[in-house]
Nucleic acid binder design. Structure first.
Lengths: 211, 211, 211, 211
DNA sequence: GATGAATGAGGGTTCATTCAT
DNA sequence: GATGAATGAACCCTCATTCAT
């Protein structure tokens, strides 16, 4: 359980992340992971201690933290509050799309809450990020640009829910808009642009006075 | 495998739905289900053929179909297109909140795509409901009240994503707004109202010209 | 884990007792037991719950209890205290020789104390039997035939130690006395006679005044 | 596998002896031993070749050999045969109590006969010591002080059986006689005295004519 | 029609050992 | 000479399912 950043450890993390995102935690066996990673089964216990702790390691290494981004935005005097919020939304879209597999796992694990350590980690992440966003919103409210009454967790539901749900509907969405001819990169770029624009409209409506 | 609507069968369906929603399909054993339902383990194979077919039965009996609702709305001349859309959104909120457990299962199963029969069922439901909603939107567009260019699947992502994500954040949301003192019914009623209002703002912004 | 006295259960108990006595608890795998019993591996969990509980079941079914024998002896007016004690010694020799395999297990398990349930069972059995024997000894002391100061646990050590140690030296003993030509039954009969006579000499010396 | 008497080797031997005596050979893993000895796991194979050979090394270093003691006794003209025998019994008590852990291992290993090399070693030790004791007994017989017919292996069973069995009942014995207040050394001294006296009574009865 | 007994496959984990350094 | 990394085998147990009744 010792070596922290060996190549095999990273390989196991990547393979596990992929398989968990495809078949779920309980639907993936350690033998599956080890075989696909081309590594001996016993190495999972060796590196991580157990299958559960492997999952925890994935969470530790992949979880999204927007605190730094928010701090940068708050300091940036060249942006008005709505623009700051837009940048933050882009950050969410970007980061979640960058870590599709992990966020698919996250989606399921929030439902199938079993591992108390992961429950704890999720709670912390959620609170932390919510609080960061609150800082941006309060700024807009102070400047009189945002509505006084904003249900921030509800707003976050829409933000995360929209992006996450897109993750499980990627193929459907691609087919609907006949985007199969695009390369993966092109599609991804297009999708991020669409998501970003879509969410900005939503947030502007939610945050602004005029409704 | 014969009896179609015996009491035991319904009991198994309910128990399985609950356990699948709490622990996932792979995390739930047929023993768990049978024990909690107070029924012999062999009965699951007996009534449904297999654990997988039990899952399929749950999907068959719980899937949301909005076609009828849409047909009624389209015929109702007393409502303008936006009102029709609002009614439809309320229908979604109402139905998903009514079937929380099933929609938690649905959330995971869309990620953990394993059973081809369920994949097929999901695809059909999605297309069917999308097409129904499209009918309402086209009506609004014809009357010049809705924007010409609406990304309907993206809009649906936000609708379903927002409601679904609320399902996995219920406790967090309740705690954040200090609603623990409410009874379950009161909280549910409050939540549906908030969800409904929130989503209407979003849809109005998305469908209207003014952005 | 339900059926209490099925044939397969008994077969598993017998096979496990034999293998545990030959290779020890940790040296015997559930596969070994199941294979030799001609029964599926899963049946051990099915009948007993676990390998440990199988061991506990063996202890429950095979443990020696001399209370009844002692009660009969105490009531029997035709025997003097030393004769009563002799009968009790014969009972020990007889019962332990009858259950050689179990007592070999017992021998090891007293050393390798791991399972708390078995530790508890052993403590109870030891106390119970010690107390029963004490009753016989007190009778002899009351009648002035036995020494006042007898270290009963020490005496029991010699009784159990002598018989138990013979169990692990059977082959050596047989070879030393050139008894290989005897049938198993003949050898066993001879051995029990020798053990019995030997132990009686010892106990007479320990209990009588004249030392 | 080279260094014969390095410090680490001795540390491994001691730790292994302790763990084998507490949890048995099969119940102790090489990891356990290495960890508790503060030494790398691979060292066990390195120093001893294998776990089995580590056990053999323990037997080689700890086995009791009374030949020398017997030779000294035979030469000592100041002692009569019974006194010589008493001295020999004290030697047994002393040596076995000195090496409690090893003799607990021995107790189990005689039952769980798996390693042929150890079986062989045990047979040799047993024969050697038996033959040594025989020398003392024959002397007593020649002088007409001991019975002609003595079942020496049976007598050894009682000797070894009594001491060994005390090893597994130490705590019980201490509690029974309320000796918990004694220090370890005091208790050990007391116990050896009691054992010694007890066994001498027994041997006198077995060896003398008067029964 | 309904069920307890039984099964073979596979689950996660730990084992003693060996290899490359 | 000494060690951390890695291995394949085996561990006990639980799985979904089927069979005999």
């Amino acid at each position: 359980m010792k070596p922290a950043y060996s190549e095999k450890r990273l390989q196991l993390l990547d393979t596990a992340e992929r398989l968990f995102s495809e078949k779920g935690f309980d639907g993936t066996s350690v033998r599956d992971i080890a075989e696909e990673a081309g590594i001996n089964t016993a190495m999972i216990s060796y590196y991580f201690g157990s299958k559960e702790k492997l999952m925890e390691a994935i969470f530790e290494e992949r979880s999204l933290n927007v605190r730094e981004k928010v701090d940068l935005l708050l300091k940036d005097d060249s942006l008005d509050p709505l623009q700051k919020m837009y940048r933050l939304l882009d950050e969410y879209v970007e980061k979640i799309m960058q870590r599709k597999k992990f966020h698919r796992i996250l989606l399921c694990e929030q439902v199938i809450n079993q591992n108390p350590i992961i429950i704890e980690m999720l709670a912390k992440i959620k609170s932390r990020n919510l609080s960061s966003i609150n800082d941006v919103i309060r700024l807009g409210q102070k400047k009189g640009l945002f509505k006084k009454q904003v249900d921030v967790p509800m707003m976050m539901n829409t933000l995360i829910g929209t992006i996450s749900h897109m993750l499980v509907n990627l193929d459907f969405y691609k087919a609907y808009h006949h985007l199969e001819t695009l390369t993966d990169e092109e599609f991804e770029k297009t999708l991020k642009k669409k998501l970003s624009a879509h969410i900005k409209i939503i947030f502007k409506a939610i945050l602004s006075h005029e409704s």
